Amino acid sequence: MTTTVSAPTTLAALQGTYTLDPSHTRIGFIARHAMVTKVRGSFNEFTGQVLVPEAGLANAQVAVSIEVASIDTRNAQRDDHLRSGDFLGAPDFPQITFTSTRVQATGDTQLEITGDLTIKGVTKSVTVPFEFEGGAVDPFGNERIGFEGSVVINRSDFGITWNAALETGGVLVSEKIALEFEVSAIKAA
Rank of each mutant, 00 (worst) to 15 (best):
G28K: 07
G169D: 05
T10H: 11
H33W: 01
V122F: 14
G134D: 11
R83S: 00
E180P: 01
P91G: 09
L20G: 03
A164S: 11
D79N: 04
A165Q: 15
I153G: 02
L117G: 12
F87C: 01
L88Q: 05
F130D: 04
A12I: 05
G121P: 08
A90R: 10
R155I: 00
L172R: 14
F147L: 12
I66N: 04
G146R: 07
M1I: 06
T123Y: 11
E148H: 15
I71Q: 02
E54L: 09
G85Q: 12
S174Y: 01
K120G: 04
V68I: 07
A105M: 10
A12V: 08
I30C: 03
T3Y: 07
E143V: 12
P22A: 06
L14E: 05
R102E: 13
T106N: 02
S6L: 13
L51F: 09
S100Y: 13
G121L: 09
A34N: 08
Q110N: 14
P94F: 09
T37D: 00
T2G: 06
A60R: 11
L57K: 09
V126M: 00
I119C: 01
R78G: 02
G134A: 09
F158V: 04
E54C: 06
N163E: 05
A165I: 06
V39S: 01
G56S: 11
P139Y: 12
A7H: 13
A63T: 14
